[in-house]
Design a protein around this nucleic acid. Structure first.
Lengths: 206, 206
DNA sequence: GAGATTTGGTGACTTGTGTTACATTAAAAT
DNA sequence: ATTTTAATGTAACACAAGTCACCAAATCTC
């Protein structure tokens, strides 16, 4: 069982009680789509365990990575859309079995006024996602694929707290909106420069 | 004199009074830098007249366009940047003579709790900028330069409410992080397809 | 174990776009 | 009016990255 109090220790006790009273804890298997482009958002969620990938789908079904939601984080877009009851522009999918706390839309507005810690949490969530998008724009606007790949691998390693990235070249290519051959080629070059060791379905950073 | 009441008609009277009491109206000449990468922000601003360009500077001084702030809009980033001690990666600059209403940062938090219309305004500002960044990511991740140029011209025309875009090829190239020759080439092709008419320092959309 | 599928490696080619170099024309400055 | 500067046109080339074709090895399925 996840300890919500530890994960969201910044919340004041009264807010925590309300969250527990109004929220629904749900465990979702890996690879499930949580939000589809154009879909209306009925509730927001706080991630308790696992991780959620936020991405944009291209014409060929490639899942262009925007960022990951980790435990202790919330979906910024759902909070914003909640206020306006508008359709989402992005897709969300669990990358592993994930436990979330679903919070009804009505509560979000209410808590903003009632709890300073919630207000700061929401603003900080929004700020962090904004920053993440700025970094992404930086990458795709100014960096070549070799730099983007390196950045991607390092970030992946950091998030999963390991030096071994368990992904196929094909999966990486899709998340970077590139092609398998290009990624294979660049990875081989990185291996020759002793930056990585390549295995089947795995890449070790050194 | 600009009519603040018309521009921000959604604000409740009490809020409007506070805005007028606490805000400072300032007119800034064209081409002035309002926010520099890494700068600390002391106040946020509501645009009353003119327009402000939000962009990212690349190594060569090119001003990669993110979006424009128009009358009736506020700078979402100023709130975001203020709370973060780390360097903001964006810059803001007036594109024409611009009148803004400067609001001390302390007021922003306060009004969020006191005035529902302010709360909705700020959240809606966030949401709109987020949307704008998503559209930008879409463009640079999935579109070729010809499509991006077309999108850029149409948006520019729409914002300025005219079919004639008064920009040099060089300026356009910088905002799209491309080069002058490439833009000239693509514009010529568009002219041959009867999509535009090219003048010196101006492009007419047809 | 045989065949099918997934994953990765690689060479040849194509395309989009950035670069270099220089010419031409319009506008501004003198 | 002449000179200077800024804006635009264009050809030739370079390079990153996408595509095609095919192969080899690992893994899964029956």
């Amino acid at each position: 069982m996840v300890n919500i109090n530890t994960l969201f220790s910044q919340f004041e006790p009264a807010l925590m009680e309300e969250i527990i009273a109004n929220g629904v804890i749900k465990t979702i298997p890996a690879g499930e789509i949580l939000m589809r482009t154009g879909q209306f958002i009925k509730s927001t969620m706080l991630v308790l365990e696992g991780s959620i990938k936020i991405f944009r789908e291209n014409e060929d079904g490639g899942e262009f990575l925007m960022y990951y939601l980790q435990p202790g984080e919330a979906c910024a877009l759902s909070i914003i859309c909640a206020a306006k009851s508008e359709a989402s522009q992005i897709m969300a999918k669990t990358v592993e079995e994930t436990t979330v706390l679903m919070v009804p839309l009505g509560m979000i507005d209410k808590w903003m006024l009632d709890y300073k810690s919630w207000y700061h949490f929401v603003l900080s969530t929004y700020r962090d996602r904004f920053d993440e998008l700025l970094t992404l724009i930086d990458q795709i606007a100014f960096r070549n694929m070799d730099e983007r790949l390196e950045f991607y691998l390092k970030r992946h390693a950091k998030i999963n707290n390991t030096n071994t990235i368990a992904l196929s070249h094909q999966q990486i290519a899709e998340e970077l909106n590139s092609s398998r051959e290009v990624i294979s080629r660049l990875l081989k070059k990185m291996e020759q420069r002793n930056m990585v060791i390549l295995y089947r379905n795995a890449i070790e950073l050194i």
